[in-house]
């Protein structure tokens, strides 16, 4: 795994977030309490003088890990986050992948309609999954949340799209060029708090965190961030190998994203 220059990555991410805040009147950010979205919040605090000047949304289907809820509670208080919890139902009678796709997207759509957000900061990275590699830093969604991945803005010379479809919104992706080890190097350097599930316990840890249903731990002895970074320098396993959703057929992820979920 290539370790990139953190200073350059950080500068670009801060620039993108400041651009989004400047161009769009009503911005919010999604937070899953994972390492990426927490790193995004730490970058936002750097970008905006120690504060996070927009609401933070957690789409909660109620089956996240208890450690995740505790981490949310503690960090929201410590960083004085304007936290919105959008509760979603669990309707398992919907088809297999739709636990996230349908249930969480419905909750997000409802919230977006209520609050009228026109830009949503989402902490995806291109290296996580093939379909995410198709994303742009500022990626338009139409009013139905649909993403036309076949026709995307060019983003030449750091010029990012601010054109909103009628009642659509823009997905802002400040971490697109980061990779997994960059996130951990940044987390270590900036002493960003992390969900304790990332650390090894009894020979297992969670490398990627979703809800209790779709996330499995991996064998690891990495008890701290240094151990995690050392492990990543030699691993050949994909980051999201423990995520059931990604084991669905590849087109499923593409379909989810085209429908408007992250």
């Amino acid at each position: 795994m290539i370790e990139q220059d953190l200073k350059q990555l950080q500068e670009r991410s801060i620039y993108i977030m400041r651009e989004a805040k400047e161009k769009f009147g009503n911005v919010a950010a999604l937070w899953s309490m994972g390492k990426d979205s927490t790193a995004m919040l730490a970058l936002a605090r750097k970008a905006f003088l120690g504060k996070v000047p927009f609401p933070i949304i957690h789409i909660d289907n109620g089956i996240d890990f208890p450690e995740t809820y505790k981490f949310r509670q503690e960090l929201a208080k410590k960083w004085k986050l304007d936290l919105i919890v959008a509760e979603s139902e669990i309707k398992p009678e919907l088809s297999g992948y739709s636990c996230c796709g349908e249930n969480k997207t419905i909750a997000l759509k409802k919230l977006m309609k209520e609050r009228g957000f026109d830009a949503l900061i989402v902490s995806i990275r291109r290296d996580e999954h093939g379909i995410r590699a198709k994303e742009r830093y500022m990626s338009p969604r139409n009013r139905d949340f649909k993403w036309n991945y076949k026709e995307q803005p060019a983003e030449l010379w750091n010029d990012y799209s601010s054109k909103l479809d009628d009642k659509g919104h823009i997905r802002v992706h400040p971490l697109l060029d980061w990779n997994e080890i960059d996130i951990w190097n940044f987390t270590k350097r900036e002493k960003v708090p992390i969900n304790p599930l990332y650390k090894s316990k009894n020979g297992y840890r969670y490398r990627s965190l979703g809800c209790t249903h779709c996330t499995s731990p991996v064998k690891s002895n990495a008890k701290g961030i240094d151990g995690i970074i050392n492990e990543l320098r030699s691993t050949k396993t994909e980051e999201r190998a423990g995520r059931d959703q990604d084991k669905e057929k590849e087109y499923v992820m593409e379909k989810l994203r085209a429908l408007g979920y992250m």
């Binding site: 909660d60 289907n61 109620g62 089956i63 996240d64 890990f65 208890p66 450690e67 809820y69 505790k70 509670q73 509760e87 979603s88 139902e89 669990i90 309707k91 599930l197 316990k201 009894n202 809800c211 209790t212």
Partner: peptide
């Protein structure tokens, strides 16, 4: 129907 794992906050996963 919603998940209820928030009511287990404070416990450790095994």
């Amino acid at each position: 129907i919603r998940g209820a794992t928030k009511y287990l906050t404070g416990l450790s996963n095994i």
